[in-house]
Amino acid sequence: MSIQHFRVALIPFFAAFCLPVFAHPETLVKVKDAEDQLGARVGYIELDLNSGKILESFRPEERFPMMSTFKVLLCGAVLSRVDAGQEQLGRRIHYSQNDLVEYSPVTEKHLTDGMTVRELCSAAITMSDNTAANLLLTTIGGPKELTAFLHNMGDHVTRLDRWEPELNEAIPNDERDTTMPAAMATTLRKLLTGELLTLASRQQLIDWMEADKVAGPLLRSALPAGWFIADKSGAGERGSRGIIAALGPDGKPSRIVVIYTTGSQATMDERNRQIAEIGASLIKHW
């Protein structure tokens, strides 16, 4: 067993022997301040990774656009098919120029040779490549099948209805392509620590998230040296922004954090800054 596999296998073990965790309302004060600064709703939840206990939450059962955070769930569904012998990570998928959609920095470079399922998941999570996500959605049967996968996990809230990039439209009061912070946090925890996926697939999923290259201005910008984070960000229309993450000190994750916002007129930089400040408060009061 590799060191990384050992780390993920012992996530519940280490967490069980940690000192009790206590909620700190100071972080919620910052979440509410972010709402004021952005002029928009902000949803927040913080779960203990081992027990699933909610440590703090704000608007945990209000719907927010998922945006690209759905790509972690998508690759979880792909990995479940791999575990069941219905898919192979090494299978190569070929596609054409007509398949390319807006923001496809990886797939646009491989029109000639195609990409493997493993490479597509890596591109979808680490670079948020939209064509990679659409190609992977095709392998599982489309958005409705991802929703069905989530329902089978016990998540009857999260739903995907459309493809990239239309799913980022974020129309107010439109339930399409949305989740709730509580539902997303619980589902992410199941994917990373539950028995739904094999140990190898859980490790692969967290490795992809740990290698995320496009979430630097968010929670990662607030992390002290030595902290662990595996995350996936999302951005959408109407001032929408979000991030889902597993993080913790001492090089291992111990909490799940989900943050979503929508309806702001603020710039992307300002949305990023507010999420980073929430992260800084979380870490300060850990």
Rank of each mutant, 00 (worst) to 15 (best):
G90W: 13
Q37S: 14
Q88V: 14
V106E: 15
N98L: 15
W163Q: 09
H156G: 12
G248W: 02
T187E: 02
R118D: 13
H94N: 10
F228K: 08
G234F: 00
A182E: 12
P224L: 05
D113Y: 11
T147R: 10
Q204V: 13
R81M: 10
N173T: 11
P143C: 07
A215G: 08
V29H: 14
D129N: 00
I125H: 04
L282F: 09
S80H: 15
E87L: 12
E102Y: 15
P165I: 08
I45D: 02
R238H: 15
Y260S: 04
P249H: 08
D269E: 12
H156K: 13
T131P: 03
L219E: 03
G236A: 10
A280D: 15
G226P: 06
L49C: 06
H94F: 11
L167I: 13
K53G: 13
G39Q: 14
H110N: 13
L199A: 14
T187K: 04
T262V: 12
T27F: 03
V82H: 09
G248I: 02
P60Q: 15
Q88M: 13
A266F: 13
D161I: 01
P172A: 12
T261I: 15
M153Q: 09
P60L: 11
T198G: 12
L197G: 05
A40M: 08
Q203N: 10
H151F: 11
E169C: 09
M67D: 05
D269I: 11
G52K: 05
T112S: 13
R59A: 05
I54F: 11
V106Q: 10
Y95E: 03
E210D: 09
W208N: 02
L188Q: 00
V117D: 00
P105L: 06
K53F: 11
D155I: 02
T187F: 06
L197T: 05
M115P: 02
A266L: 13
R92C: 07
S104G: 06
M66A: 07
T261A: 11
M66Q: 05
D177S: 02
Y260V: 07
K109I: 11
L146N: 03
A276D: 05
E164C: 01
K284V: 10
S264L: 04
L111S: 09
L100T: 05
H110C: 08
D113F: 09
L146A: 06
L28D: 02
T131L: 07
I45P: 01
L89V: 07
A34M: 15
D36P: 05
T261S: 11
